[in-house]
Every structure is written in C-alpha cells, then in structure tokens.
Design a protein around this nucleic acid. Structure first.
Lengths: 198, 198
DNA sequence: ACGTTTCCGGACAGGTTGTCCATTAACGTC
DNA sequence: GACGTTAATGGACAACCTGTCCGGAAACGT
C-alpha cells in the first residue's frame, strides 16, 4: 500500500527528465511542461507529486543525500578518520555514478537550495570530525572547527566540480582523493612546489 | 552627452532595489514589477535599461567586478605576491563595503551566473600567480595550477561567505586575511591543531 | 529658451503557473 | 480472476508575469 509501481515509475521519469533537461538547457529555462513532456507524463500528474519545480529538485537532492548517507554510515562507524580516506573515496565514487546530478547540484542550479543542502550536510559532518579529533588529542584548534569545515567543503566541492566537468575518466577517483588529501594536509604552497617562507 | 543624470539615477535605484529585495525575498521570488516598484521607476523604464532581471543582475555584477579590478590593479603592479597579503585584504575590504551584494553573489543567487563570473575571474588571476611563481622558482608544481587556483577560490569564497553572513564586525578583515593565509600555507591539519602524521 | 533624451503609464498578446474535475487505466489484494 | 482502490490523463480555468509598444509629459544639457 505504500509503494505503487506507477508512483515509482513516474517519480523516476520526472527525476531523469529534470536532470537531463537541466544539463541541456539549465534549470531556469525549464518549464514544468518541458519536464512532463520529456518524462512522458501529464502535467496534472506532476502537480500531484510536487508543489513545483523547486520541490522536485529538492526531493531529488534529498534522495541523493540520503543514498550518500547510507553509503557513508558503515565507513564512519568503523573508522575514526572522519572524511579523509575511505569516506572521501566513497563520496567521489558516488559522484562518479551520479555524475550529471552532482554536476547540476555543484553548479548551484535551482534556487541554490540543493547546493546549500549538500554544503550544510557536509559542514556538519566535517566540523564534527575536526572537533572530535581536537578533543582526542587534547589540543586547542588554532581555528574554529566550523570555519575549517567550511574551508574544507569549499575547496573540495570546487575541485570536485572541476573534476566532474572535465573529460570523463580523465582522472580516477583514487588520484583525485590523493590530490585533495595532499592539499588538506600540506596546504597549497606545498602543492605548487615552493616554500611557505613566502 | 554620454551621461544623463536621469540615467544614472534610475540605474542606481534599480541596483539598490535589486540588492535589497534579493536580501529580503531571494532572487527567484522577485518580479520585475517588485523591483521597479521599490526603485520608484516605471516598468517600461526597466526594459529600456535591461533585457530582463538576469541582465540587470549581470550588469550589477560586472560593475562590481570592474570596481574590484580597479582597486587590485595598482597592488598587482607593485607587488609579486599575487593575491596574498595586500590584494587579499583589498578584496575583503571591498566585500565589507558592498556587503549585501557580495552576500547575494556568494549565495549563488540569480541563475548562478554572477557567482560564476566572480569565480572565473578569480581563478584566472590566482592560477596566473601560481604559474608565474613556479616559473620564477624553477620548480615543477606538484598539482596543476588551475586546480590549485580552483581550490583556493573555493576555500576563500566559502570562508568569506561565512564571514559575511555572520554578525557584522565580529571579525576584522585583517584577522580573516591572516586566517586564510594560515590555511593556505600550512593546510587544515595545522589549523585544527594536530599532526599531519594522520 | 530649445531641441533632445528619458521617463511615464497604460495597454497588449503570449506564455506559465497552479488548480480543478470527470474519465480511464493500472494496481494490489483477496 | 474479479473487485475496490489509487494513480494517471486530458482539458479547461483564472491569475499572474513577461516583454513590447505607444503618445504624452517631464527632465536634461547646451
């Protein structure tokens, strides 16, 4: 009684149509009719599923975020490394699988809410990691963990976006993970190959 | 003959109205009439200045970007530090003065184009710095300068956004510049106060 | 004071939104 | 396999927003 096959089908179709069309024409240019047409669904049906375009995008994003969360859960449980190493790799693999959707979100399409949802969730997780670690080591953070987390997320999302917008398969997820880890650990002067002195 | 006072006045009014209204209700919710009403301008007048809402926002952003460029120019000429130190501080001060507009842009409001314009311009400047420095030092960058630049911009914009969204005057621009410099130079493990070992 | 440019306000067609409803088709269940 | 329930359909609706046009009024620079 909870899951009607028809419901799943149209939800799926709407999701796919949305992603495909945003990739083609950009979110702002889309009409509800464009979406329903591509999805082969009546316009009235759309409104029985979502209040509007934004609501659809939000729902799609929520689903994606939850799926990601389910993958991260077991990793977070068994390790204390937070978001480096395995969890980071899991994120990158997920992004690889849902490439277009991640692209669309990272571009800030929609009213920006999808990206904000992703960002806030990431900041929550990452700042928790930095906080927990500081406690374990009994050291005072030089900088507020939330700020560090926002820096982390900003940097990682920017690089991920560059990665996803580039040629597919140009760089394996493992390579990118290493790159990001190096950046995080040693800073950007290290990355560029010259001295922190100046 | 190039500058009619009326033109300047309405352009200004439209700009202010746009920024104020986006802060209040968000870009997507705005009508052209909302803007003209707030600006005390006839709707027809709006269209004699801009094609549409997006065009107005784009123009406002372009102006801001140019103003910033003019401030950065003399600094870039006299120093070789690229975007750290004085230029970074100039950016932060500019953001402080045009606080709401920067906020609106960094949030990714509009169709995301304003933020993209800002980002791309920043990436151009920063990657040039990293490239130039690598040449001077005759060292091979460990990571592609463009990627480093994107990381730089992602991190800095994220932290700037946090800064601008927070209580005004909570942290002086100088303090933020130091924070960002530390993050750039030493990485985030340094910032959080524990060992790069893991 | 004069010719020019901008602003005004009102009107226009065209497109989009969100809602409604009666009808048809697909579904899960027994 | 038949039955009651639930979802999808197509069409119609008012409300709104968009972008464009115009003649007349007002402000501008010289």
């Amino acid at each position: 009684m909870a899951e009607d096959r028809r419901t799943r089908r149209t939800r799926r179709a709407l999701r796919d149509a949305l992603v495909a069309l945003v990739m083609e024409r950009g979110y702002a240019a889309l009409t509800v009719e464009d979406i329903t047409e591509r999805a082969d669904v009546a316009r009235a049906t759309f409104y029985s599923h979502c209040r509007d375009k934004d609501a659809l995008f939000t729902r799609v994003t929520t689903d994606l975020l939850q799926e990601l969360g389910e993958r991260l859960q077991p990793l977070a449980d068994k390790s204390d490394t937070g978001f480096t190493g395995e969890p980071l790799l899991a994120l990158l693999h997920h992004a690889e699988e849902e490439r277009d959707l991640y692209r669309v979100i990272l571009r800030g399409e929609g009213d920006g809410k999808p990206l904000r949802m992703f960002t806030e969730e990431a900041v929550r997780r990452i700042s928790a990691v930095f906080r927990r670690r500081a406690e374990q080591n009994h050291r005072e953070p030089r900088i507020d963990p939330e700020v560090i987390a926002r820096a982390w997320v900003g940097e990682h999302f920017a690089v991920m976006q560059w990665w996803l917008e580039g040629e597919e398969g140009r760089m394996p997820a493992e390579g990118l993970a290493e790159l990001l880890l190096g950046l995080s650990r040693h800073g950007r002067y290290w990355a560029s190959g010259f001295d922190p002195a100046d």
